[in-house]
Design a binder for these strands. Structure first.
Lengths: 343, 343
DNA sequence: CGTAGGATAGTAAACGGTTACTGGTCCCGC
DNA sequence: GCGGGACCAGTAACCGTTTACTATCCTACG
């Protein structure tokens, strides 16, 4: 494979000149020379070595995104947003599915640090694991040192999101919407309490209750893993409990989707017997049965802005937290409550 | 940030020794020295520079996966499989959503080449674009030259898949299954004919028809983009056409999902009026309304094996094509036909 | 006792770019 | 006629590793 010196030789110039031409450096090169270099590069099918370039510049145009699971539509949409912003800038995107295990997250960040990624985006919520967090913090500091930008899309151990949404207000608005439909007993599938976002969303539930003038009943709150399985399990718990409810809100769509499925199995009609609402508005929410009422998060846009924020950060700006709007979208899974109670 | 020479200095040894210790080289280093080096590395929080290492080795442990869209569950599952195989080997995964546009694909491959990725996986079907293909072929050749492994998961311009499924047999088996339910007029949503896979699946449709002893009617075949939108459009076309049908098979699940949605809107009950079957068995197929009958592809496994195949290729083995099994899974979207015809 | 050879460690040359510095031309104006 | 600056190109140091080769020490064997 041709290297810069091959091109230089063929064009009859020094490698410095070739470098200046092919890397679009702000340096005057005469048109004739430029053409000769470009010609040589073309005939040799020359492609610059990004590793060599990166070694010199101490970072490489690669953005690493830490997600829980790329298979989760929430994250794939987000990553797609990042990618679409990164590509025009010549950056490649590495996705790291940490499955919410702190050690894997740390190992990914370490790997990203070792290859001098120029951007690190934490899309997943921070975890409460002091020791691992300390290790991650060390890596992040080191990365900043060599010029990497780091942006958070969720609240984390050391602060709030750089680009994100107001989770608390978002969930609250959904609870209020349910209350406005007439529901007075609203259960909540809270997700794992070890996650910062989950906690914010739970806080949103309580705030929504307050805003709607409803009482909090902790028998109506169930914590489970953040996936469909968890939603199904939570329904079992709720139906087995003593507290009646006519609606259930969920901390994310996957939970709500699992709930939908399990409610159908257990013979509860949605929305006739129980209303169900999710959070996130992932693509599949729309095609669920019935289509899921939820709170729309501009995931793709968050991804795009995350990359843009990183660029700004790299150019010296300090980041203002960006809070993007959420919107309640009511579809067929919610309706005014019937007379009876589901529980 | 500490470099290898900082560690060497602190440990009182040469960089060669440090390198031999931290890179687990097959070279004897005395236990005492080893400990001193490891200690120094720890206290300096030393992380080797993968770019420098890569520059020397002429490739870096990174696998690039070319997909159509990471947001499409088909690809995210596949990528997840790749990632889970790559991570234990210390490789990072770059996802490239080309949106089926050949130029973007070429540009991604070029980028991957420029950073000397050690593995390139084409997860998306090859496109029929001679000029761009020629460019891609040049990049691939160059990558092989520096030691990269290249594996295809779909048929492409230069041959068949290295790891994949028998698309033709898979679709044929679904058509036969529909015929066994009693359907004699089976429409087919073919996807874009410019895609090799789509063509194979269309061939499977015809073969299934033959196997079931049914006649081919080209009014029952509709080509559209490979997404939900396309499926919906295809239903409009079919319902507007003169040819009656009691079942529709689709070249992938997204198409079938779109069909489901549109059939509901147009007042056709599934499976009472029309049976619908997809292909791929993406995660959302299960949660559709009604749950979608489809052909299961071991996507995650294909991803894992793709990486394994790359490793073998890199170690000199020539690849035997691997054909993984598919399985018809009948859920609630298919049933024996009623008396009347839907069309 | 001399030395072959194993066990360790060090030296230095790549790998392929970028860029600070240096140098040569040429033109202009005084 | 000469100083000065614009313009363009080249030289070489450096980025952080790996590794072929060399050097040293020590042990064991003839």
């Amino acid at each position: 494979m041709a290297s810069i010196s091959d091109v230089a030789k063929l064009a009859g110039v020094s490698t410095a000149t070739v470098s200046r031409v092919v890397s679009a450096a702000p340096y005057a090169v005469s048109p004739a020379t430029r053409e000769r270099v470009l010609d040589a590069a073309r005939t040799l099918d020359y492609v610059p070595n990004a590793l060599a370039r990166g070694l010199h510049k101490s970072h490489i145009p690669v953005v690493g995104v830490i997600v829980h699971d790329i298979t989760d539509p929430y994250f794939s949409e987000l990553v797609r947003g990042v990618e679409d912003a990164a590509t025009p800038a010549g950056s490649l995107v590495i996705t790291c599915s940490s499955d919410r295990v702190a050690e894997r997250e740390e190992s990914y960040v370490r790997l990203l640090r070792s290859m001098r990624a120029s951007t690190l985006i934490f899309a997943s919520s921070g975890l409460d694991e002091p020791i691992v967090n300390a290790a991650i913090r060390r890596h992040v500091t080191a990365m900043r040192e060599y010029g990497a930008a780091v942006v958070h899309l969720s609240p984390h151990a050391d602060g709030h999101a750089d680009v994100g949404v107001d989770n608390e207000a978002g969930v609250a608005s959904m609870v209020v919407a349910l209350a406005e439909l007439g529901h007075r007993h609203i259960a909540f599938l809270a997700g794992p309490t070890s996650l910062f976002v989950a906690r914010q969303r739970l806080a949103g539930y309580r705030r929504g209750l307050v805003e709607a003038g409803l009482a909090y009943d902790d028998r109506l709150v169930v914590s489970t893993p953040f996936d469909q399985e968890g939603g199904a399990l939570a329904i079992d718990t709720l139906l087995g409990g003593a507290a009646p409810f006519t609606a259930v809100g969920a901390a994310n769509d996957l939970l709500a989707l699992g709930a939908l499925e399990r409610l159908a199995i257990r013979g509860r009609r949605v929305p006739d017997d129980v209303s169900v609402a999710g959070f996130d508005d992932i693509q599949t929410a729309r095609m669920a049965t019935p289509p899921l009422s939820t709170v729309r998060l501009p995931l793709y846009d968050i991804g795009r802005r995350a990359f843009a924020a990183a660029e700004r950060q790299r150019s010296g700006e300090t980041l203002e937290p960006e809070v993007l709007p959420t919107a309640v979208v009511l579809r067929a899974s919610t309706a005014p409550p019937a007379d009876g109670l589901a529980g």
